[in-house]
Structure formats: structure tokens, C-alpha cells
Design a protein around this nucleic acid. Structure first.
Lengths: 187, 187
DNA sequence: TATCTTTGTGACTGTTTAGTCAGTCACTAA
DNA sequence: TTAGTGACTGACTAAACAGTCACAAAGATA
């Protein structure tokens, strides 16, 4: 499985640099020091490679979030985890995060089972619903709150990659960004 | 130039439905009732067609914003125009707006001269800078405010297309969304 | 050692695609 | 009547590409 992971790593790098369609499978294999056939030994189609990569990365990000919010019960801390962890994770894994952004805005997303997508959204949505019900969050449709938080994350990430700064400064921006979004949705 | 516009319209429809790479030039020409050669008579490459379409649509959107804020001087009203007009415009031109979103997140964006992109961003940024300087807006990097407004627009648009509602309800959401973002950035 | 399975090769193929080009045709104007 | 123009055609080409396949090594198992 060493080679398989190596193919995933190489594909990731090339996809982010040249895009999905700008990266032929032959190039991925060659760059990974393997033959074209080997790629199709591990992944039956190119699409499968792309979606595998997404599932893989998304899984790692989710794991990071889960580790961060483990044991937490307060709505604020939970939302904080869901908001801040991906951004901090993105600082350490910029290529991976870029890939997920690119993927989310591509037609590939539709190839993914709705179930897979849902499994990442649902837990967070449940927390938001509870927050609204308990009066911690404003009486706004939880799905709208979800969209707001998501969009905010997207904004901050965009800003961070366009304006490189020290890790300390970046951390500060993320912290400030959370206060902003929290004030926006909390009662 | 009738045929050229017709090609642009057809391409727009197909690109939004099938994506850039999922739409062969031959299909665009056929769907437009023209021959393959005609497409290349008007647009020297496929890329030129795609970017033309973007410039075209972006121009129309900018015109709508300009019409809305004409004569305005108050920072709040200007920002309101920059935020609300694209969203209302998107309600009436969903396909066009979807196209710009898709385009903005694709590698095609890099093909566009930085100048072209800048020309849309700069005027708004200037207003934000003035707002910060005059103490109307919070002391946050105007570029960050820009990112926040942009992300907020993106969020609301996403929510609106995922949750169809009456025009009245949609308008209400946009109005509310503006109060939210205004409270977020204003002193 | 013999046999089976996994891992790997790289030349090959069938298809799809952007882009070309020689030529048609309706029209204009000298 | 003739010459010229420019929109428009569609069969064609050259390249690129995803995916296949017959064939090996390398490793495991017996």
C-alpha cells in the first residue's frame, strides 16, 4: 500500500498545480516513478483516484475536528472546533486544503455519494439545531447558519493564502475571525 | 453579431450544466444550430470563448452594481449596493451567476489578465479603505473586509439556490444578510 | 524446487477533441 | 456582368488521453 499512498500524494500535488483535467494519468504515474498500468492496478478509473483522494483528505480533516472537540458539550466550544480546526489544519496542510476547495467546486462532487457528503455535514448541523433550540444561537434556519460558517471559513482561508503572514499573525486572524462569526450567530 | 451572441448563450447554458470540460465545442456549435467551424470563426480557441463569456457576464453584473450605486456617497449605501445587487442579480440571472462562481474556482481564472480581475475589485476596495479611514468601518484590513463580504455573498447565494423560496422570502433573506454583514464590519 | 498470487510493466488501442482548411453562397459595389 | 468580401460550412487531422492487456518479476507458500 506504500505505492498506492505515493500515487495519492503525487496526484494531489499535480492536481493542485495543474487542475484535474490538466493532469493526465500518465503524468501522475511517471512522476510517482511507476508505470501507467500500475495506476490502474490501484485505481480502476481516474475518477476513482480523484474521489479517493477527496475522501482520504476529508477523513483526515474530520479526524482533526473530532480530536479537537472530543468531550466538549458547550455549543460555543463545539462550533469553535468546527470552525477553527479546518483553518489551522489548512495552515499545516495547504495543498490538501486547496484540493478540497477545488474539488468542492468541481463537477466531481456530484460523483460522490450524497451519503458521503452528508456524513460530514450532519453532525455539525445537529449541533447548530441544538444551539438554536436551546436559545444559544439566533433564531435563524440552521442550514443558513451552516452556510454562513462555511462561507466565513472559505473567506478567511482565501485571505490567508493571499496574504502570507507569520504563524502567530495567522493564528490571531483565525481567532478574530471566530469572534466575528460567533457574534454574528450567537444570541 | 447575432450568431456570436447566440453561441455565447448556448455555451453558457451547456457549461453550467455539464462543466467546461464536459462540453465539447462541437456540442456547443450543434446546439446553437451552427457548424463547428463557425464557432472557431468567432472565437479562435475554446479558452477564448470561456473567458469572453466571463468578461461579458462580469461586465453586466458590474453595470448593474454601478446603476444601483449611482450618485451614492454614503459608505453604507455603497457597500449595500456592492453586496445586494449581485445577489438580486443572481436571482434573475441564476445561470449567469452560477457560471461566474464555477469560473472563479477553476484554473481558467489564471488565464485572465490580472488587470481585468483588478478592475472589478479595486473600486470596491477603495470604498472599503475610505470607510476604515473615516471610522465608519472597524479597523480591519480592508482586504480582509473584502474577503468577508465576498464570502458572505457566496454563502447566501449557495443557501438561496439550495433552498428555493418565493421571491419575497428570498429578498428578505438578502436584506437580513446585509444587516448581518453590516453589523459585522461597521463600527 | 515448483506453483500460485500479488505487484508491476509499458506498448498499444479506441475514442474523443480542439482546431483547420478548402470551398460555398449570398450579397455588394464598381 | 464581373470581381470581391466575409459569414458560414463540415469533412478532416493530429494530438491527447483513459484505460487494456499480454507478459514479467518478486514474494509467498507448500
Amino acid at each position: 500500500m506504500d505505492k498506492k499512498q505515493h500515487l495519492l500524494d503525487t496526484a494531489l500535488k499535480l492536481f493542485v498545480e495543474f487542475g484535474f483535467h490538466g493532469t493526465p494519468t500518465a503524468k501522475i504515474a511517471k512522476e510517482a516513478g511507476l508505470s501507467s498500468g500500475t495506476l490502474f492496478y490501484f485505481f480502476s478509473t481516474k475518477d476513482e483516484l480523484v474521489t479517493s483522494l477527496y475522501v482520504d483528505i476529508k477523513g483526515k480533516m474530520t479526524a482533526a475536528i473530532m480530536a479537537d472537540i472530543e468531550g466538549e458539550t458547550s455549543i460555543k466550544r463545539l462550533i469553535e472546533g468546527y470552525f477553527k480546526t479546518p483553518l489551522f489544519w489548512a495552515l499545516n496542510n495547504p495543498i490538501e486544503f486547496s484540493f478540497t476547495v477545488q474539488f468542492s467546486n468541481s463537477p466531481y462532487l456530484n460523483q460522490l455519494a450524497a451519503k458521503e457528503i452528508d456524513s460530514h455535514i450532519k453532525p455539525f448541523l445537529t449541533i447548530l439545531k441544538r444551539g438554536v433550540k436551546e436559545g444559544v444561537l439566533k433564531k435563524i434556519d440552521p442550514e443558513l447558519i451552516f452556510a454562513l460558517v462555511r462561507g466565513h471559513t472559505f473567506s478567511i482561508h482565501q485571505y490567508l493564502i493571499e496574504h502570507p503572514a507569520s504563524l502567530k499573525k495567522q493564528s490571531q486572524i483565525i481567532e478574530t475571525a471566530f469572534s466575528i462569526i460567533w457574534d454574528m450567530i450567537a444570541v
